[in-house]
Design a protein around this nucleic acid. Structure first.
Lengths: 344, 344
DNA sequence: TTGTACGCGTTATCAT
DNA sequence: ATGATAACGCGTACAA
C-alpha cells in the first residue's frame, strides 16, 4: 500500500532528496555518476513522482487546460487531437478535463487553474448564457471555442471562436427554399433549449418568413426534454415516425444535428419513402458519417480543424504578446449532397 | 493570479484554518453559526479547495479510477455513463483519465493511485500483451474491461470482463458461411496489430478452414499501419475501392469493425453494387449507427452495458468482501440485419 | 556538486 | 466547539 517516495530513492542511494529531485528534473549541476545511480534506483523501485505534490509546490507550470463539455459529442473528438498538436508546438503541456452537460464548466475551470497551475484555458462546448460575473473569476486567459455567449456580455471580457448558429441555419433553410422545397419540417431541440438548438430553430423561422412561407406550428417537431437524448439517431428516428403518422404534408426534413438527420433517413427509407425524391433531408454540423450514408446527407459543416487551430493561436497571442481579447467567427461550409439533390 | 486559500477564509472569519476545514468537510463538532459564517465567506470569496493539497494530505479516499485508452472509441462513450452510475451507487467517487493509444496505461494507473489515493481501478481498452510483472505493480484491486490479456499471464493475477474476440469472430464467419457466402473478403486491422484486430482475423481464417474453404491471401485486406486510422469509415471506403478495382471475386465483406463496414458499404453502393444481393457486408461491435444505416448492417454486438455493470460489481466484491480475482466472459449478440439477408 | 530547511494548501491530532 | 501544529511529497534557495 505504502508507495515509494522520493525519500526512499534518496535513502537507497545515500543522497539527499534534493539530489534526487535534481536528477528527476534534469538539472545541470549534478554529477553524471550519481545521476545514473539515482535513475537506476528509480527504475528498480518503480518510483513515480506524486503529481499532486509537484503541482502543490510549483508556483507555475506550462500547461493549458481544456474543458470539454459533452464528451460524447463527436465533433469534439476531432478537435482534441488538433488542439493537442498545436499546443505542443508552443512547448506547452495540456490537460483535458471532460465534464457532463450538467456540470458547471466555470467551476471546473477554477479548480483546474489551482490544481494544475494552468497558464490558460480553452473551453469546448458549454452554455451560451454565461454571466459576466462568472467569466471574471477566471484569472488566466481563456478562449471559448464553439460556444455562443449571450450578447449582453461585453465582448472585451472574453475571447471566442465560433460559428453563428442562427445565421448558418438561415443559410441552410435559404438553400432548401432555393431548391424549391415548400413544406420544410424542422426537427428541433427540446423546448427549453438555451443553446444552439434554439438558435437554429430561430434561423429556420426567420428564413421561412423571408421566403414568404408562413410558419406552420405543425411543422415544428421538438425533441423530448431530456437534454441527453436530443442529439441521437434514435431521437430522429422517432420524430420521423411521428411525422409520417401525423399525416402532415412535407417534402423536406431539416434536422438541427446530423445524428437526428440519420435517424430520420432510416425511418423514411424503411417506409419506402425515397430520399430526396419524395422527401429531402438535411442535417447540421458536418459529421463524417453524413458522407458515408446512402444517400449521402446534406449538411452545414463546421470547420472544426481551423477553429481548433485558431483557438490555440488566440490563446498564445494573449499569453505571449499580452494582446486584448479576440473574437473569430468562422463560416460553415454547405455540403450539398444526394439527400437534397432534386431537380425543380 | 493569487488564488484564495483556506487561510484567507479563516482570516476573514476570524477563525482558525482547522475550523474552516471542519466546515468544509461536514464535521459534526462545529457550531452552526460559525459554519454558516464560513460558508458565506466561501461563497463571497469564490473559494475552491485545492484538490492537489487535499489528495496530498489524505491517506485514503473513496475514489475509483477509470483509465480509458482510446477516447474516440464510440463503444467507450456509452460505458462511461453506466460505470459512473454504478460506482455512484456504492457511494464512491470516480475519476476518468483518457489516454492515447501510445501511452502506457499501467504507468498512468500507478500515477493515479498515488495522486488520487485510488481504492480501485477499471481499465477500458488497452493492450492484451501485458506482462505479469506490470500487473503486479498495481497495489489496488483492478478490473480489465474489454481487454484481452495474454494467456501466459496467470489468471489469478487480475480480474477481467471481456468478450472472446477470436471465438465471436468465428461465430460471425460461421454465420456468413451458413448464409451461403463463398468468397468472403476480410477487412482486417494493420499487419502489426497486437490486439482485437489480429484475433478477429485469426477467427476468420480458422472458421473458413473449418468450412472447407481454402484460405486466399488475396481476400485479406490489411489496414495501413498507422493505428489511429484503422477504425474509420474512410479506411473501409478505401479498402473497398481497392477491392473493387482489384478484380478479385467476392460476394461478402467482413469488416473487423463497424466503422470500416460503413465505409465499405458506401463504396459498394456508389458503384451500384447492391447489398446484400451482389455483396453482403458484416461489421463488428454493434455500434448504434449500424441499425440506422440503409441497409441496416449485420454486426456482432458487444453487451457493453452489462459488461460495465459487471466490471463495477467485481471490483467492489474485491474491495468489500476481499474476494479473489474473477473473470467474466460475455457473449456477443449476432444482430442479423439487411446487409446479409439474402436467400440461398 | 551536494545537503539542509522551508513552504506549497490541506486535513488530522492533539490540546484547550 | 475551537485553535495550534504536524504531516503529506516535492522543489528550491541557501548553505556547505
Amino acid at each position: 500500500m505504502e508507495s515509494v517516495t522520493i525519500k526512499d530513492i534518496a535513502k537507497k542511494c545515500n543522497v539527499a532528496v534534493s539530489t534526487v529531485s535534481r536528477a528527476l528534473n534534469n538539472h545541470p549541476d549534478i554529477n553524471e555518476q550519481t545521476r545514473q545511480k539515482i535513475l537506476k534506483a528509480i527504475q528498480e523501485l518503480h518510483y513515480i513522482p506524486n503529481n499532486s505534490a509537484q503541482n502543490l509546490k510549483k508556483t507555475a507550470s506550462k500547461t493549458i487546460g481544456i474543458v470539454v463539455k459533452g464528451a460524447d459529442n463527436p465533433l469534439f473528438a476531432k478537435m482534441r487531437s488538433i488542439l493537442a498538436e498545436n499546443i505542443a508546438q508552443y512547448d506547452y503541456d495540456y490537460y483535458f478535463e471532460y465534464i457532463s452537460i450538467r456540470e458547471d464548466e466555470i467551476r471546473t475551470a477554477l479548480r483546474l487553474i489551482k490544481e494544475k497551475r494552468l497558464k490558460g484555458l480553452i473551453f469546448l462546448g458549454g452554455n451560451y448564457d454565461r454571466k459576466l460575473e462568472d467569466l471574471q473569476q477566471l484569472t488566466v486567459p481563456f478562449v471559448m471555442s464553439t460556444v455562443n455567449i449571450q450578447e449582453e456580455v461585453p465582448r472585451a471580457a472574453f475571447s471566442s471562436v465560433f460559428t453563428d448558429s442562427y445565421k448558418e441555419s438561415r443559410r441552410m433553410v435559404e438553400y432548401l427554399c432555393r431548391k424549391g422545397f415548400q413544406k420544410i419540417v424542422i426537427f428541433a431541440g427540446s423546448k427549453n433549449d438555451a443553446s444552439v438548438g434554439n438558435l437554429r430553430l430561430k434561423g429556420y423561422l426567420d428564413e421561412l418568413a423571408a421566403n414568404q412561407i408562413p410558419p406552420d406550428e405543425n411543422r415544428i417537431f421538438f425533441s423530448p426534454d431530456q437534454a441527453e437524448d436530443v442529439f441521437t439517431m434514435e431521437n430522429g428516428y422517432r420524430m420521423a415516425k411521428k411525422l409520417i403518422q401525423s399525416g402532415i404534408a412535407f417534402d423536406c426534413i431539416y434536422a438541427i444535428a446530423d445524428a437526428i438527420a440519420i435517424g430520420a433517413c432510416k425511418a423514411l427509407l424503411e417506409k419506402g419513402i425515397r430520399i430526396p425524391q419524395e422527401c429531402a433531408v438535411a442535417g447540421f454540423d458536418g459529421l463524417d458519417v453524413t458522407r458515408y450514408y446512402h444517400p449521402s446527407i446534406t449538411t452545414m459543416r463546421q470547420p472544426i480543424e481551423k477553429m481548433a487551430e485558431e483557438s490555440v493561436r488566440i490563446l498564445f497571442s494573449r499569453l505571449h504578446k499580452k494582446t486584448e481579447n479576440e473574437h473569430c467567427e468562422f463560416s460553415c461550409e454547405l455540403l450539398q449532397r444526394e439527400s437534397t439533390n432534386r431537380e425543380r
